[in-house]
Design a protein around this nucleic acid. Structure first.
Lengths: 139, 139
DNA sequence: TTACGTGCAAATCTTTTGCAAAGCA
DNA sequence: TGCTTTGCAAAAGATTTGCACGTAA
């Protein structure tokens, strides 16, 4: 796995302390498949003694997004969630009760949709799928 | 087609002028498959001489959402878009070349996703699917 | 050195809310 | 009449931005 500095350089971004820190937070969150708000990133940094501004976190996240390092999700209204961009496709399931975001993959979805588009005379370039769900209470 | 007043009564909402007006705006937008922001609804009303507050538009839209009359979408960041809830499900296919929007339905999609959510312990409430495609040139 | 990045705080935008007046049933 | 709804304006929450200073290359 390339270092944060390396990733930043590859993306054409000047290497600075705030960018490295934000990248590392996102990278470790990525391992647990978690989506973080700007506030989340900010709190994780300040609570571990790091010195950064919320405004800077927003600026860094926007730059990362523009550079293709990060994806911004707007599942619910009111705030964006950020996740490190990876090569693998995954869909999102959003729990309407808790706001929790679950990632899942379904290899057949893409195939089916490719087929669907093809039948109508189109080539499938990309797609967005979000399931809105509610956790079932055990009876 | 039932009147706005009738729809409101059926939903258990007291019939008031602001509610009727907002419902009618959404209904006419629905014919063209357009999604409106609260601001859009507000402007359409005030610009046609109607007297209403943006705050009231928000309150009415939230009540409609709670009553199941309206769906709130969060496609892009920053703001919600509202559309009248209808019986029929349809997906959207957006042509990246022409910008054309094609509606389509696939009865198997919902079934498969319902199954998927169930297996993970969730109940599927709704989902959003957008295909980004490109028109194939006949060779 | 020099253009770019950051801290700080104020500004902006969307949405919600408290309160008193007005309206539906 | 009694409870709900609305207007008005202020509040709240998320995100952006202007400016002066600091810093990577």
């Amino acid at each position: 796995m390339p270092s944060a500095s390396q990733e930043l350089r590859n993306a054409g971004l000047k290497v600075t302390a705030p960018r490295i820190k934000v990248f590392q937070i996102l990278a470790s969150a990525s391992i647990e498949n978690r989506h973080l708000s700007a506030e989340d990133v900010y709190r994780q940094l300040t609570s571990s003694g790091q010195d950064i501004t919320l405004g800077t976190v927003y600026r860094v996240l926007s730059q990362f997004e523009a550079a293709g390092l990060v994806l911004r999700r707007n599942f619910e209204s009111g705030r964006s969630l950020f996740e490190l961009a990876t090569e693998d496709r995954h869909e999102h399931m959003v729990c309407l009760a808790s706001g929790e975001v679950i990632e899942f993959t379904d290899p057949t979805i893409e195939v089916r949709q490719q087929e669907f588009a093809r039948q109508l005379g189109y080539e499938l370039i990309d797609y967005a799928l979000v399931l809105y769900v509610r956790k079932k209470e055990p009876l």
